[in-house]
Amino acid sequence: MTGPGSTGPGASSPPAILEVACKGLCPRCGQPRLFAGWIRFADRCTACGLDFTQFNVGDGPAAFLTLILGTIVTAAAITLELTVHPPLWLHMLIWIPVTLAGVIWSLRIAKAALMSAEYRNAAREGRIDPGP
Results as ranks from 00 to 15, higher is better:
L107F: 07
G131N: 07
A47F: 07
G10D: 12
S106H: 06
N121H: 15
W89P: 03
W89F: 13
V84H: 08
T53R: 15
T7Q: 15
I104G: 05
T79W: 12
A21N: 01
P9N: 11
V20M: 03
A101V: 14
N56T: 09
D43R: 14
P132S: 12
A77G: 10
L69M: 02
I72D: 00
V20S: 03
T71M: 12
C45V: 03
R120M: 12
S106K: 04
I109A: 10
R124Y: 07
F55P: 06
A36Y: 01
T74E: 05
L88R: 05
R124N: 12
D51W: 03
P27E: 01
L34T: 02
G126I: 12
L93H: 00
W95M: 02
F55I: 07
P130E: 11
P32L: 04
I109Q: 06
G131F: 06
P132T: 11
L114P: 02
G5V: 09
M92L: 15
C45F: 04
E19T: 14
I17V: 15
T99G: 13
P87C: 06
G24W: 04
F35Q: 02
D43W: 05
K111Y: 07
M115E: 08
A110Y: 08
P4M: 08
T46F: 06
D43G: 15
A110I: 07
L82N: 13
L82S: 07
G70Y: 04
P61C: 04
I94V: 15
P27A: 04
S106Q: 05
R127H: 14
P32T: 06
W105T: 13
L93Q: 02
A117I: 12
L88T: 11
E81G: 14
F35K: 00
W38P: 01
R28A: 15
V57I: 10
T46I: 11
L107P: 00
I78T: 12
G49E: 00
T53W: 01
G58D: 12
T7R: 15
L90T: 12
R28W: 04
F52P: 06
P87A: 01
T7D: 14
V84S: 03
C45M: 08
H91W: 04
I94M: 09
A101T: 09
A75P: 02
G30C: 09
E118A: 15
L80R: 01
P4V: 10
F41A: 01
G60N: 01
T2G: 13
G30R: 10
W95V: 02
V20L: 07
S13V: 15
Y119V: 07
I128V: 14
L25K: 05
A123G: 05
T83C: 04
I39E: 03
G49F: 01
A47I: 02
V20K: 08
L65F: 10
A75I: 02
T74Y: 09
P27K: 02
G10S: 11
L100C: 10
R120F: 10
F52S: 04
R40N: 11
K111C: 02
I94L: 14
A36W: 03
P4H: 15
Q54F: 04
I68L: 15
I94T: 08
I128W: 13
G5Y: 12
D51Q: 05
P130W: 10
